[in-house]
Design a binder for these strands. Sequence first.
RNA 1: CUUACGUUGUCGCGA
Length: 310
Amino acid sequence: IYLTNLLIEMYSKCGSLKDAEKLFQGTQEINLFTWNILIEAYARGGHVSKAKSSFDSMPEWELVTWNIMIKTYARFGYTEQAAETFKRMQARDVVSWTAMLAGYAQNGYLQEARDIFERMPERNLVSWNAIHQAYARSGELEQAEDIFREMPERNVVSATCMVSAYGDKGRVGDARRVFESMESWDLAACNAMLGAFSRNGCLERARAMFDMMPERDFTSWNSMLAMYGQYGHVEEAVRMFGRMPALDMVSCTIMVIAYSRDGNLQQARLIFDMMPEKDTAAWNSMLQGYAHTGHPRACRDLFDVMPEKD
RNA sequence: CUUACGUUGUCGCGA
């Protein structure tokens, strides 16, 4: 049963929801872990109502199950349901409190997040990071700085969050200062620094950062693409796009925008049509390409065939 | 064997 659970989880983490489901249904030996893994799998795929019906079909619930439901609701914007779930729980641990705090923050409820933080019976580093991030993402930089300075301990996550917050405000020098004071860096930390450079038009510094990074993922590559596209170096974006080891939906969407802004709607459409998966952001980007370049007809035609409109 | 925090794209919301 351990092995079955591991296998289901593996499928889920690879995005093979169908295989995870099949395995779940095909196995007779099931425990609470199995249920939790299944709910988590639905949550990953954004199938909130399936997660909820699995939750309802379970023989019993444990704390982890409730925690997963809080996260699932909050992540997809069902803040009220998350809060209801939180209130209905008989026992809560630090994970429950932190999930609720982060859930409020992700949906823009800074005050509620703060209230949760203050009511928490105990806080750990993750809880501190969550409240720190809540202020940072709301643009409350001074408060975020205060928390960062005063929190009992900091780790790579705390610092990454600060780097990103400075970057959002255009304070590249401060971002660098924090980044350089870190005692260790992981990929996300490097990406945050790279993003601070790229979003603020520091092309050379971004390039140097990118070249120096020991490893790169989609986020790293996509930051570079977006920067070159945004700052009018479409040919450089194209060059990097061609060098990427693999493409994802975001890379392609960035190129659709870059080509469109460059007036090259044919190339934009070519990339768009090549994409194996498209979300609404991808569709909207292509629409906007047509809309802003005087192609109302093409825009309308595309709009009419969109599978999902927001 | 399962759950909470950080890094990339469109639009909107805030300012």
